[in-house]
Computed example of a mutant assay.
Amino acid sequence: MKNANDTETIQIVSELKNNPEKAYTLLYTQYASLLYGFAFNLTKSESISEDIVQEAFIKIWINRKDLHIETSIKSYLFKMVQNMCIDSFRRQINKPEIIGYLEIIQDSQISSTESCSMFDMDEFEERLKEAKKKLTQQQRLIFVLIK
């Protein structure tokens, strides 16, 4: 037996294929703000959250004729946004500032005698604090979990 979510999903997917502008507008109106709040809760960034939600709806529009949704449309959209947030975190980790910060940490762990001769520890700690200040709260959490 199909529940209301299944029926709604089938109807929306069908409408996206047959009357895309109306269905897309309805879908955007119904879910954009919810998805933004969800993305913001994960990223803690207004601009990143807005970009992710916009990108999600662009993907829906581009792939509207090939959509095959097994779950509810709501679950599908939230899972899509969650995956896009994870991808965003991965891209942030590969930024030059983060890579430089990680290289400093890695270089400092070569050996205690080498690191003492390579860096003045007070200067290193100061640079480390400055680098951490440039990271968002989520980036700092990711860095701590990695290292």
Score class of each variant (00 low, 15 high):
S47K: 12
E8W: 01
Q138F: 05
N5P: 01
T71D: 04
D107K: 15
D107T: 10
E8C: 03
R127P: 04
F89M: 09
S75M: 04
Y101M: 15
Q138K: 12
T71H: 06
L145G: 00
A131L: 13
S72R: 05
D87L: 13
L67C: 10
S75G: 10
L26H: 07
L102K: 00
M1Y: 08
V53T: 04
D51E: 11
R90M: 09
S47E: 11
E55D: 15
L102Y: 10
I69M: 02
L26E: 14
Q139R: 08
Q82D: 14
A23K: 03
I146F: 07
N41T: 02
T29E: 07
Q109P: 03
E123M: 04
S75N: 12
I73V: 08
I93N: 05
E8R: 00
Y24M: 13
S33E: 14
L102V: 15
E50W: 00
Q137D: 14
Q92K: 08
M80H: 05
T29F: 01
Y76V: 05
N83L: 12
K2G: 02
L128V: 03
N5K: 02
N18C: 07
L16C: 06
I98E: 02
R90E: 13
T29N: 07
F124D: 13
L135W: 11
K134F: 01
I104A: 03
T71A: 09
I58W: 10
S108P: 15
I105S: 00
I10F: 05
M121G: 06
S117P: 00
L102P: 05
E130G: 02
M118C: 09
L26D: 03
E8Y: 10
T43M: 12
L128H: 06
M84A: 10
K134H: 11
T136R: 09
H68Y: 04
E15V: 02
D51Q: 07
L16H: 08
K132G: 05
A32P: 01
D6C: 00
Y28T: 06
I105R: 06
E46M: 08
V53Y: 07
I52S: 07
P20D: 07
K132Y: 09
Y28E: 13
I52R: 08
M84I: 01
E55H: 10
F89R: 02
I10C: 05
S108Y: 14
K129A: 11
M80C: 14
S111M: 09
Q11E: 14
S49R: 06
S117F: 11
W61Y: 11
L34D: 10
L145N: 07
Y101D: 10
A131D: 13
I69Y: 08
I10K: 09
K129P: 01
L77D: 06
T71E: 10
D6L: 06
I69V: 15
A131E: 10
